[in-house]
Design a binder for these strands. Structure first.
Length: 287
DNA sequence: CTCCAGGAGATAT
DNA sequence: ATATCTCCTGGA
């Protein structure tokens, strides 16, 4: 039930702000702040601690379910492809994006498990980050594997399929309980469907996800961006809607027009741009 | 008390 | 295609 020793990751480009925002800023709901420089999360069945002190990034994982440095650097997108993605974004001609990149330097899109990401974003409708987090944790603790430290793993859709909607409602999921039960049921009769979806090109994958109950454009884009590495996905929530209207002058544009603008303007890594703009809007750097 | 928060679905136009 | 209403819950 203990943790392995701390190890340092030599090369990274996180700042305290961008690491905090990456872990807690709304793309993931499995991280908790343990101290001013320390965070604890669950990745799959492994519990992982991260520490960022004086620019040094260190980590340790649970002994029960070990985690490798390779898995972690992949999860945190710590490799050259991140810098290449930043370079490809249109910040040279876009002062809003440029300012945002400066403010949240090092901000990443995490490489989270697809099935779990879909689950968490199914809960996200009209809920705040802390509510999504506590609902998800409650489900994980009750139906997932108990990992110690008061943490449970994502139970998986197979297990969730056995859980009646009423039980999920008792865990405060509200009307989202129907969506979770519906998706579990949908997947139960389609072995390998989710994995296959993740491997399809973005547009195709998005259309398939939207066949499921409770999955519209926004949640499909979130699941694909944060859980399947589809970096061109550009989820538009109320914050992004505001951002596009205020910072890019798109007042009066329809949602689909905004999405088209974003995908054309921000390009191949639109989802990464989205995360910078989202954080900027939410944390009010333009205010 | 009312209102709304990181939405989707059904219905009406 | 776009607009409005409802669906749960917790917090302002």
């Amino acid at each position: 039930m203990g943790m392995d020793g701390w190890r340092e990751i030599g090369k990274h480009s996180f700042t305290p702000l961008s690491l905090e925002e990456t872990l807690l800023g709304g793309q993931s709901f499995v991280w908790t702040k343990k101290g001013s420089h320390q965070w604890r999360g669950v990745i799959g069945r492994s519990i992982v601690d991260l520490s960022l002190r004086n620019g040094r990034l260190s980590w340790r994982a649970s002994l029960l379910h070990p985690f490798s440095e390779g898995e972690l650097t992949k999860y945190l997108w710590i490799d050259g492809s991140y810098d290449a993605a930043i370079e490809e974004m249109p910040w040279r001609s876009d002062p809003v994006l440029r300012e945002s990149l400066r403010a949240f330097s090092g901000l990443r899109i995490l490489g989270q498990p697809f099935d779990e990401t879909l689950f968490y974003f199914l809960l996200s409708s009209a809920k705040s980050i802390s509510q999504i987090k506590s609902c998800g944790e409650a489900v994980a603790l009750r139906y997932g594997e108990k990992l110690g430290f008061g943490i449970g793993s994502f139970p998986g859709w197979n297990r969730l399929c056995e859980v009646p909607e009423e039980e999920l409602r008792k865990l405060k999921l509200g009307y989202r309980a129907k969506y979770v039960a519906g998706v579990a049921d949908f997947l139960a009769s389609r072995s390998g469907w989710l994995e296959e979806t993740a491997s399809l090109p973005y547009e195709k994958a998005k259309a398939r996800l939207m066949e499921m109950p409770g999955v519209g454009q926004k949640i499909a884009d979130c699941a694909l961006l944060f859980g399947a590495g589809k970096l061109e996905a550009f989820p538009i929530d109320t914050w992004m809607d505001k951002s596009l209207e205020r910072r890019y002058g798109l007042e009066g544009w329809s949602l689909s027009q905004k999405l088209t603008f974003a995908r054309v303007h921000f390009g191949k890594f639109a989802g990464l741009a989205q995360q910078f703009l989202f954080s900027s809007e939410r944390r009010g750097i333009f205010a």
